[in-house]
Design a binder for these strands. Structure first.
Length: 426
RNA sequence: GGAAGGAUGGCAGAGCGGACUAAUGCGACGGUCUUGAAAACCGUUGGGCCUUCACGGGUCCCGGGGGUUCGAAUCCCCCUCCUUCCGCCA
């Protein structure tokens, strides 16, 4: 959520930011109008309220002094004011609600450092690592769903029987590989990040805090009977973990990580990129996330990116890093680097981590605050996060990259200890 | 799921219609005293919004929402959560 005070004081900055995203800058005028209403009405209500209060105190005094008639007269006067106060208060409420609802649907402003552009074609490739398109042999040019079936480690057919399309089931060492990858990601980040095992069903307000609601309700699974939402990422519970809390400056940054299942309806993407593990409704992911003072944010953004990248690199996979253009940023993000792992079997780069800096956008929604070391009062902090490891696409890239001429799959050394010492799958 | 009791400032805990601008204690912070520390004493001690260059001022917040009243922490209704007991159960 944007700061209304920013909209008020620098409306042109906000308009320009929205325009860079391809959003309608006219939202600003609507917000300014509502904000004006709220403030004017609040001031009037407060002064009427002060009047009522003062009269009521006098009434009390008069009654105590047995001056019944004067007291009764004052009561009459106050009664009319009370009605006015209720009326004004109702107007304040309805305008404030309208303002908030409108504000919740306005995306974050892109960082000035985010590249210009409106579509994914405008994203900037920052670097490629380990990537040589000519280095892959024929035996590596087999899509993971075929490898998975051949080796009995991925059972899409039966997963569909249980849950429908875009659900998958890992078996044998394929299932162990899922666990191994998550365990590896947790262990690599345990030096700084506190491990959290959060609930995966959350309340509406928890989804609102990260920006997943109200705008993107179609993307999430909703258990209507209990009004709970299945989390699309551990970012959701980890961001709300500190909701309504105030952190001391020396407690920051706070770093968290969580391994959870993630659930995504992927509405509107039926039939697109749906083979194998390219796009699934439920998957495992280890997310790393930080609460930071604004001045700490750039370093943390770099840190999270380095960690997300490092694990892909050390697994010996090829990847590239993209700097997302303003128009392709997620609604809550101010700046995002995507890591895309190369999967030779499907011959494509697959997004496997989105490392984002949300400035104070989510923190304001979640009411995450801190006490600045030198300042007075409180300030809204910043949040950042990224996937330390999202299983399906990495799993896919891994079995395709490490497929041998005999069809078996080598296990990278880094993973062997996590895979009961197995060096080969198949 | 059923029954009963509860929810007040960082913590403990009073208040149960009119000086609540929330007592008191503890804690924390600052000061006096002291070679230093402790003790003692004095003072300070939350958050939101609006307004102000600033000092300051106004208003709201006693779990959340509604109601009664001139006036609600206090009375009424609904909800949430906690505790204890019962039932069920990995």
């Amino acid at each position: 959520m944007l700061d209304v005070r920013l909209i008020r004081s620098e409306p042109d900055t906000v308009r320009a930011g929205l325009a860079r995203r391809g959003d309608d800058p006219a939202a600003v005028d609507e917000l300014l109008h509502l904000d004006e209403q709220v403030r004017v009405l609040t001031a009037r209500r407060d002064s009427v309220r002060a009047e009522v209060r003062s009269i009521s105190n006098q009434v009390g005094t008069l009654f105590r002094e047995q001056r019944q008639e004067e007291a009764t007269a004052l009561q009459e006067e106050s009664r009319a004011l009370g009605a006015e106060e209720r009326d004004l208060d109702a107007q304040v409420e309805s305008n404030a609600t309208a303002l908030r609802e409108r504000l919740l649907r306005v995306p974050n402003l892109p960082s000035p450092d985010a590249p210009d552009g409106l579509t994914e074609d405008d994203n900037v490739v920052v670097r490629h690592e380990n990537f040589d398109p000519d280095s892959y042999a024929e035996h590596q040019r087999v899509p993971h769903w075929e490898i998975g079936e051949q080796l009995g480690i991925l059972d899409v057919e039966r997963a569909v029987k249980l849950s429908g399309s875009m659900f998958v089931m890992y078996r044998g060492l394929g299932a162990a590989l899922v666990r191994a990858l998550c365990q590896l990601a947790l262990d690599r980040n345990a030096d700084l990040y506190e491990e959290v095992r959060p609930p995966t069903l959350v309340k509406t307000e928890t989804m609102v805090s990260t920006g997943h609601l109200p705008k993107f309700a179609d993307e999430a699974y909703h258990a209507e009977r209990d009004d709970l939402w299945a989390i699309p990422t551990a970012e959701v519970p980890l961001t709300s973990l500190g909701r309504d809390e105030i952190f001391a400056a020396d407690e920051l940054p706070r770093r968290f990580m969580a391994h959870t299942s993630c659930f995504r309806r992927e509405a509107g993407s039926a039939g697109k990129d749906t083979r194998g593990l390219l796009r699934v409704h439920e998957f495992d992911k280890v997310e790393i996330l930080a609460y930071a003072a604004p001045e700490q944010a750039p370093d943390l953004h770099a840190e999270i990116l380095a960690r997300a990248e490092g694990i892909i690199a050390e697994l010996g996979l090829a990847y590239r890093v993209l700097d997302l253009c303003a128009g392709d940023l997620g609604a809550s993000s101010a700046r995002t680097f995507d890591i895309e792992v190369f999967a030779p079997g499907v011959d494509r780069f697959l997004e496997c981590s989105s490392v984002s800096w949300f400035s104070d956008y989510q923190a304001r929604r979640a009411n995450l605050r801190y006490r600045p070391a030198d300042g007075k009062g409180t300030a809204v902090l910043n949040t950042l996060n990224g996937s330390a490891l999202a299983v399906p696409r990495v799993w896919a890239a891994l079995v395709e990259t490490y497929r041998r001429p005999d069809g078996k799959v080598d296990v990278p050394e880094l993973l062997q200890p996590y895979l009961r010492g197995n060096t080969v799958i198949g």
